[in-house]
C-alpha cells in the first residue's frame, strides 16, 4: 500500500513533466499539421543552454531560463521561416517535413554532443528538502515542479482563449482558408506557433533536466514518450495531451512497481496500439 501510494505520487509528478513535453508537439501539429520528429533534441537544447549559463557563467536560475527560452523562441521562428515554410509549399509536405526534422534532430543532437561532450549533466534542483505527510514523502523540488507545470498549462490556455494571437492560432488550426478569409497572416501565425512550441519544449527540457539526467541523446526517449502521449490524447488537442500524460505517468509508475522498469516500453506500445485501434482520434480528440 505504502509503495503503491508513493508510486502513484511519483507517477503524477513524471506525468506532469511529460505533459509539458507533449504540449510543444501537439501545439505545432494542431496549428500547422507538421509532426515534429526533431522534438526531443529541441528540449535537450533548451536544457543544455540553461545548464551552460548556470554552471559556466554562474547566471542565476531565473535569468538563465529566460535567456534560454528567448533563444528557443527565435530558433523556432528561424526553423519555420527557413525550412518548414518552403517545404510546406511542396507536395508530399506531410512526410518530407517528418524526414527533414528527423535529419535535423540527428544533426542537432550531434552538434550538442560536439559542443558539450558526452558526459551526463544535471541542472540543480530548485529547492532542497522533502515534504512528509504520513508515509508519503515528496521532495519540495517535485512539489515546485508540479506547481510550475500547472502555471504553464494555465498560462497557455489563457493565451489561446483570450489573446489575439492565441485566437488566431486556434483559428488556423481549425480552418486555414477560414483564417485567410478573415485576414489572418498564415505565415506569421505558423512562425509564431513554432516559436511558442519551441519555447514550451525548451522549458520542458529544463524541467526534465532538473529531475532526471541530461545527455545529448536523452531527447529521443523523451520524444517517443511525447509521441505516445499526443496520440493518446488526440493529435492537436492540448487538454487531451495533459490528461494522457497524467494517465501514462501513473501507468508507468505502477508498471515499474509491479513488473519492473524493463516492461515500461512494451506496455506503452501496447497501450498505444489499443488506443489507435479503438479510438484513433485519441481519448479527448474530436476528429481524426
Amino acid at each position: 500500500m505504502e509503495n503503491l501510494v508513493n508510486a502513484l505520487v511519483s507517477g503524477l509528478i513524471s506525468g506532469s513533466l511529460y505533459a509539458t513535453m507533449a504540449l510543444g508537439l501537439t501545439i505545432i501539429y494542431g496549428v500547422s499539421r507538421v509532426f515534429n520528429f526533431g522534438h526531443g533534441v529541441i528540449a535537450v537544447i533548451g536544457a543544455y543552454i540553461t545548464w551552460y549559463l548556470l554552471s559556466v557563467f554562474g547566471v542565476p536560475f531565473l535569468p538563465a531560463t529566460l535567456l534560454s527560452l528567448a533563444f528557443m523562441a527565435s530558433f523556432g521562428w528561424l526553423v519555420y521561416r527557413f525550412t518548414m515554410s518552403p517545404l510546406l509549399k511542396k507536395p508530399n509536405w506531410e512526410f518530407s517535413t517528418v524526414l527533414f526534422m528527423l535529419g535535423a534532430g540527428i544533426l542537432l543532437e550531434n552538434v550538442v554532443l560536439q559542443v558539450f561532450g558526452p558526459r551526463v549533466k544535471s541542472i540543480p534542483v530548485l529547492v532542497d528538502g522533502a515534504l512528509k505527510v504520513g508515509f508519503i514523502q515528496i521532495n519540495w523540488h517535485e512539489v515546485a515542479l508540479m506547481g510550475i507545470v500547472l502555471v504553464v498549462i494555465a498560462a497557455l490556455s489563457l493565451f489561446f482563449k483570450y489573446t489575439r494571437t492565441g485566437q488566431a492560432m486556434r483559428a488556423v488550426a481549425q480552418s486555414i482558408p477560414g483564417a485567410q478569409v478573415v485576414g489572418i497572416n498564415i505565415e506569421q501565425i505558423f512562425g509564431l506557433t513554432f516559436a511558442l512550441a519551441f519555447t514550451v519544449t525548451g522549458f520542458s527540457g529544463i524541467l526534465l533536466g532538473t529531475k532526471y539526467y541530461l545527455n545529448p541523446h536523452v531527447g529521443w526517449e523523451w520524444m517517443v514518450k511525447g509521441f505516445v502521449i499526443v496520440t493518446f490524447g488526440g493529435l492537436g488537442s492540448t487538454s487531451g495531451a495533459v490528461v494522457a500524460a497524467l494517465v501514462l505517468g501513473l501507468v508507468e509508475a505502477v508498471a515499474t512497481l509491479y513488473f519492473g522498469a524493463i516492461w515500461v516500453w512494451p506496455i506503452w506500445f501496447v497501450l498505444f496500439l489499443i488506443v489507435l485501434l479503438l479510438r484513433p482520434q485519441g481519448i479527448l480528440g474530436g476528429r481524426t
Binding site: 485566437q167 486556434r170 481549425q174 480552418s175 482558408p177
Partner: peptide
C-alpha cells in the same frame, strides 16, 4: 466563401470576433 470555412470548434461569438481580426 461558398464552403463557409467557419471555425467549427468555436462559438458563434468567437467566430464573429475573429472576423474583426
Amino acid at each position: 466563401p461558398e464552403e463557409r470555412h467557419l471555425f467549427s470548434d468555436m462559438t458563434v461569438l468567437e467566430n464573429l470576433y475573429l472576423g474583426a481580426y
